[in-house]
């Protein structure tokens, strides 16, 4: 796996590399402009034929969206996550549809839930799971779901509702972690 990373480094500028929780899982970060080149290289020369997932993380603190492209090589049985960061104010990126056709639906999902638009994906504006959603994309961290839920769906006047469940849950998990 290290050889692979070295090979990639010899060609592309790798901003950050990191071993994952398994031996065959590595995470690299590249510049967003070189992503297509990297993916293309990995697909054609390093047998990473399978794009398992495209996911998105909202780093609201850094004002960035992280896009992760999770690749899998059937021959080497290795996972490689290539991640990039894009500007949160201008959530646009280019599609990888030409490399991995299956990216179509992942990108559609990210478009719907994070509002990142992918230039060149023809179907990205279709509904993925939400029908007729008009608000801010719901998975962004600045979207207040509780408020939205209460406004839209109402609230049953009950004991349970009045307690702050979020706090209870976070307290509980903190306690559990501490153990």
């Amino acid at each position: 796996m290290e050889d692979l990373i070295k090979r990639i480094e010899s060609i592309f500028k790798v901003l950050k590399k990191e071993r994952g929780k398994r031996d065959n899982l590595w995470i690299i970060e590249v510049e967003k402009d070189s992503l297509h080149a990297v993916l293309s290289y990995l697909k054609d020369n390093e047998s990473f034929k399978h794009l398992a997932l495209v996911s998105c993380v909202d780093w609201i603190e850094n004002n960035k969206f992280q896009l992760s492209y999770i690749l899998w090589s059937y021959q080497k049985r290795q996972n490689l996550i290539v991640k990039i960061f894009i500007d949160r104010d201008k959530p646009e990126f280019k599609t990888v549809l030409n490399l991995f056709p299956q990216a179509e639906i992942y990108e559609r999902e990210i478009r719907e839930l994070y509002g990142v638009s992918f230039e060149g994906n023809p179907t990205q504006n279709e509904d993925f799971v939400l029908e007729d959603w008009e608000e801010m994309p719901p998975m962004r961290r600045d979207f207040d779901t509780l408020k939205y839920s209460q406004e839209k769906y109402g609230d049953r006047d009950s004991e349970v509702q009045k307690t702050n469940i979020r706090k209870i849950i976070s307290d509980f998990t903190d306690e559990w972690r501490r153990k």
Binding site: L130, E135, T145, L146, S149, Y153, G154, R156, S158, Q161
Partner: peptide
């Protein structure tokens, strides 16, 4: 269905079905 349950604050779960 009663009040949203564990999804009470979800952006996409109907809390009061009887409405």
């Amino acid at each position: 269905t009663v009040n949203g349950g564990m999804y009470y604050d979800s952006y996409n779960t109907v809390n009061l079905v009887e409405l």
